[in-house]
């Protein structure tokens, strides 16, 4: 169907584009950008460690890791969709329902816990909620053929509405043994959520970067025509990416309940930071494509930025400005490089 064509950035399969010279300069610029972003990351860490008290302490680094867990899990979910759909922001893969998904899953978890169900039931209910939302997205995109931007926007509204119905727009406090464990500190006094983020990233990276299914996702996202010609199940892979992303939303919902001791309103505010983080992740990868580790790095980059600013006692107002500037830089740089490559 036409959906697969819409998913792909047009630039990629224009015929006769790869003459060797521009491609080489493109690679050069790409590696410069990649090196540049890493250098910038390290430089910022260095500046903070020299100027901001407590920045380099184990406790603080653990705090940042823990605070990044929820946005990290969501951004990694979005990364999978970006990989399978191609990273053109308008016509490519995007899942705008992720933050609302987290909100509803959190509300489902908190409600189940309040009704007296155990952790196992509540976890299953939250993950199932996420999975269902992912499945609806997948059907809307793959079967109905709606552009992901619009399909997931519609689903986002439905999900946010369901959360309102379930919670009546109130805070639902929850306390279970699992939540207590997740919000406590693990070894080295580092928050348990920090370990959760690291383990989750490792598992996601192993699946996406090192299995044939992961490789097929990249093929579908970047060269859908070639992928289809090679006999790859394009639609099934795209659907799978949305379902995986939905599952990440459900998982992030559980983490959110533990972090906020319940489900609270306003989860939708997470959406833009998560989109920014996932898109920013591309600059931390060798070929300027979305990767799980790249997304983890960009999540931590944003996390350290916010944390360092607070430690330096600089107004949090500046942080959103810097984030916006960064995303503008990244998107324009990658777009320019892509055009150069073509």
């Amino acid at each position: 169907m036409s959906v697969d064509i819409q998913l792909a950035p047009v630039i990629h399969f224009e015929p006769g584009v790869s003459t060797s010279k521009p491609s080489r300069s493109g690679n050069l610029a790409a590696s410069a950008l990649r090196a540049g972003s890493l250098v910038a990351f390290v430089a910022i860490l260095l500046v903070f460690s020299l100027t901001a008290p407590y920045f380099l302490s184990v406790g603080n680094i653990g705090n940042v890791l823990g605070q990044s867990a929820i946005s990290g899990v969501l951004a990694i979910g979005l990364t999978i969709v970006l990989i399978a759909g191609g990273s053109n922001v308008v016509t490519g893969g995007i899942d705008l329902s992720l933050a609302a998904n987290m909100g509803l899953s959190a509300a489902v978890y908190a409600t189940a816990a309040q009704l007296g169900y155990g952790d196992a039931t509540a976890v299953a209910a939250a993950l199932l909620t996420g999975l269902l939302i992912g499945a609806v997205n997948a059907i809307a995109v793959v079967v109905a053929g709606i552009v992901p931007l619009l399909a997931t926007l519609a689903v986002m509204n439905i999900v946010a509405g369901l959360e309102l119905v379930l919670t009546q727009n109130t805070v639902i406090p929850a306390s279970t043994p699992l939540l207590t464990a997740l919000s406590s500190s693990g070894p080295l006094g580092i928050p348990a959520l920090a370990y959760v983020l690291l383990v989750f990233t490792l598992i996601a990276a192993a699946i996406v970067q090192y299995t044939s299914a992961g490789l097929q996702l990249y093929a579908v996202g970047e060269f859908p025509d070639a992928a289809r010609a090679a006999g790859l199940p394009v639609r099934r892979l795209v659907a799978g990416a949305f379902i995986a992303s939905g599952l990440c939303g459900g998982f992030a919902g559980i983490l959110s309940v533990s972090n906020l001791s319940g489900s609270t309103t306003g989860s939708g505010e997470m959406l833009l930071p998560v989109v920014v983080t996932a898109l920013l992740g591309s600059v931390f990868s060798r070929r300027l494509v979305p990767t799980v580790i790249g997304t983890l790095l960009s999540t931590l980059f944003v996390g350290f930025l916010v944390n360092g600013f607070q430690l330096l006692n600089i107004s949090s107002v500046l942080v959103s400005g810097v984030q916006g500037l960064l995303i503008l830089l990244v998107v324009s740089a990658t777009t320019l490089l892509r055009r150069q490559e073509a």
């Binding site: 406790g59 823990g66 972090n259 944390n307 607070q310």
Partner: peptide, 14 residues
Amino acid sequence: DGKLVSQLQTLIAQ
């Protein structure tokens, strides 16, 4: 609320 909790965590470290 998420930001509030993060800020309180960092404040405790400070």
